[in-house]
């Protein structure tokens, strides 16, 4: 086992940690945080894959740079939406069994 394999597996573990928190947490900010950790896991896997070669493969690096910018855009929109949800509902969470025509 090499260091890059360990990083790749750690990336998968981060993905799993985030996935679990995304499901069990109710607060929207916590769930958005969970999505960010999942994203970090995917990025770590990609960069570990790039580092397998003698000179790192630049294509995954470019993909991750794109991914980081997409992630911050999505996070910003999600946080603003969470604030709006709090403003109109008084809590930053989604009711589990919510009747759609409340």
């Amino acid at each position: 086992m090499t260091a890059t394999t360990l990083y790749a597996l750690a990336g998968i573990a981060l993905f799993g940690l985030g996935l679990h928190a995304l499901i069990v947490r109710a607060h929207l900010v916590a769930r958005i945080l969970a999505l960010n950790v999942m994203g970090a896991g995917v990025f770590m896997f990609l960069i570990a894959v790039a580092a397998r070669n003698e000179t790192p493969d630049p294509v995954p690096h470019a993909l991750v740079l794109t991914g980081i910018v997409v992630a911050v855009s999505a996070t910003a929109l999600a946080l603003v939406l969470a604030l709006r949800v709090q403003a109109v509902r008084g809590r930053a969470g989604l009711a589990e069994e919510e009747s759609p025509d409340a």
């Binding site: 995304l22 969470a82 509902r89």
Partner: peptide
């Protein structure tokens, strides 16, 4: 911008 729509949009986004 209705409360229901915002909740729905948030869920859709997640």
């Amino acid at each position: 911008d209705a409360p229901v729509a915002l909740g729905a949009a948030m869920r859709y986004l997640l």
